[in-house]
Write a protein that binds this DNA or RNA. Sequence first.
DNA 1: ACAAAAGCTGACCAAAGTGTCAACTTTCTT
DNA 2: AAGAAAGTTGACACTTTGGTCAGCTTTTGT
Lengths: 214, 214
Amino acid sequence: MAKAARDPEERIRERNMRLIIKAGIEIFARKGFDGTRIAEIAEASGLPKANVYYYFASKEEIYKAIISHLIASWDDALKYISPDREPAEAFRLYIKAKLDYTRKNTAESRLFASEIIQGARFLKKKDRDHMRQVTDAHVAVVEGWIAAGKMLPVDPRHLFIMLWASTQYYADFEPIAADGLKKPRLKAEDYETAAITITETILKGILPASAQRS
Amino acid sequence: MAKAARDPEERIRERNMRLIIKAGIEIFARKGFDGTRIAEIAEASGLPKANVYYYFASKEEIYKAIISHLIASWDDALKYISPDREPAEAFRLYIKAKLDYTRKNTAESRLFASEIIQGARFLKKKDRDHMRQVTDAHVAVVEGWIAAGKMLPVDPRHLFIMLWASTQYYADFEPIAADGLKKPRLKAEDYETAAITITETILKGILPASAQRS
DNA sequence: ACAAAAGCTGACCAAAGTGTCAACTTTCTT
DNA sequence: AAGAAAGTTGACACTTTGGTCAGCTTTTGT
């Protein structure tokens, strides 16, 4: 009764909030929560500072909005680990999808990394629980594969950590990754090579057949 | 002539600078460069703020001092990749040493990660060049092993990125790693299991012999 | 057309931050 | 012992920052 549900005028609001969020992702990623100034976000989004405050009550609110949105957007890349797939195929797709997401969302990836390094102060329990559940499901699938003799008996949890680490590194630590590859900047083809190397290494290891089972 | 070289009175200076650096590592790691306040460093080191400024001219100077010291301290862990070793042994030792260093120096590790994520603004060219050289040397060794048929033909640079990523993750993203392992905090034994899993996976892969060479 | 709702923003604070300094105490050196 | 050098620090100056607000303009529903 009091506040009628409207719709069309959601346009301006939507657009400006998107601009703020977009600028926020970039700057929070680079400076961390404490290091970010809203004046900078305002400038980057082309809005006056007071206008930013018209949409968000505080710096923390912008930050939290970004984090939650980010976690939700991950699930897509993670749908490949499912029991009806062969491990080789599943991991290949998983690694490719994760690297793809990372390459196309470097700022988000870095923002998340920044939040974790700084102690996961604003990562809500709900989000953590969600991540834990997804992991548990994946672990169960891998354990099934191991029981079926389709995989060697690796610790599934450490294995997933390896995959998270290896795929995120290219975005989070791009300057170092680029130096390591002797390139000025990473390009799409570098992500391709990364996908191949990670997949091959994970699946077959680096030792030739003659040296296996030592 | 002007400034005589002394020694014994280096004590107080040394001690206080160490206290400041130690506190700085912890706080810079958590807050990043922009997010860190010297008042906080002062408090954590038990010195009044003005005293901190007696030893360091600026926040930047403290930060740079830490970064340089940190890079130098890495080389020890990296001495295992040498041509007179067998790959299996070399990688096992490398992974163990890197994880050991990471576990014992989590704050430094995070500080470096933070610096890189924030754009490597204070990482000196000299330090980057040094890292590049070490990497080049390692790559050459691996290429030798591949040429000798001791390793499968993997891209050595991406392989090293995998190793850097996998070993650093446990310190840099500890909350996530702990969640992934279903533990409240990481302990020494988790680093042990990590070393085993990473080593086994890198060397042999995860597929059983029957599924190899598909 | 017009009132109400939504959107906008320059100007303004109070708090917090970096860095300075002059005066004081402690620690050498001889 | 006493002058010099090193170390200490409360108080201060100046800047930046998060956040507010009153009054303005634009958009929208009827």
